[in-house]
Amino acid sequence: MIRDGAKVLLEVRGLRVKVGGVEICKGMDLTVRAGEIHAIMGPNGSGKSTFAKALVGHPAYEAVAGSVVYEGKDLFAMEPEERARAGLFLGFQYPVEIPGVSNSAFLRLAYNTQQAARGADELDPLEFDDYVRAKMKLLDIDPGFLDRSVNDGFSGGEKKRNEILQMALLEPRLAVLDETDSGLDIDALRVVAGGVNGLLTPENAVVLVTHYQRLLNYIIPDYVHVMDGGRILRTGGKELALELESRGYDWIKAAA
C-alpha cells in the first residue's frame, strides 16, 4: 500500500554490481517505503537476481559503485548476518541443501538469532515446536518438513515452501523473494502468496523478483519495475505487469 510520508526502508542509488569481474547491474535506482509491494520483472539475464544477491551480501556479488541505504544505514558496511538480523530476508531462487542439519534445529536457530537481535525472548525446542507447527498449519505446509535435513532431497516446490516458512518465522522488515514462484504448481503458488500476504503490515515491505505475471494475480504489487541490461527501464503500477504479459519486453527496450 502506497502511503504519503511512509518511512523509507531501502534507498538504492546508482548501484553497480560485478560477478566474476563482469558488471551485471549497471546503475540501479530504487526506493522502497514501508507498506509497499514492489515487483521487479525482466527477461533472463537482465540482472534481477544479481541485484537480489548483492542486497543480502553474497560474497560472489561485488558492489563496485553506488550506494544502498537500509533503514538509514549503509548496507554494504554490514556483514550478511548483520543484514539478516536487521530484518533483511532473501527467499533464495535455489535454496541450498544441508544434509545432516535438521530443518527444525535450523529454523529454531535462525528464529532465536532473530529474536536475540530484537531483544525478544528465545524459545526452547518445545516452545519452538508449538510455534513452528502453528505457522506451518497456517501456511498449509507439511509438518514432515521438520524431521528432514534442511532442503535435503526436497522437490523444487518443497524448497520454496521452506523459504516461505522461514520468512513467516523471521518476520523480516524487508523481504526480497528471488523468483520464488518459478516452477511452482498452483498449490505451491498459493502457499507463497499466502505467506507474503500474511507477512505484510504497514511497517514492512516486499520486493518480488519474478519472470511471470501469474504470481501477481495473488499478490497485488504497488509498483512494477522492468529491468533490462542491468537497469530499471520503466516503473509503473500493477497494470504494467499485464501489459508485459500481452506485449512482451521488446517495446520497453525500444521505448528506452
Binding site: V56, G57, H58, P59, E79, P80, E81, R83, A84, R85, L90, F92, P95, V96, I98, P99, G100, V101, F106, L109, A110, T113, Q114, A117, S149, Q166, L170
Partner: peptide, 26 residues
C-alpha cells in the same frame, strides 16, 4: 561448502557458528 555457509549467514547465523554447524553435520 561456501554456498551452505552463506545460506546460514543469510538467516542471521554468525560465520563461525555456520561453519561449526556444518562441520558438526558432516
Amino acid at each position: 561448502d561456501q554456498e551452505q555457509v552463506f545460506y546460514l549467514r543469510s538467516r542471521g547465523l554468525a560465520t563461525e557458528h555456520a561453519r561449526a554447524l556444518l562441520t558438526y553435520a558432516f
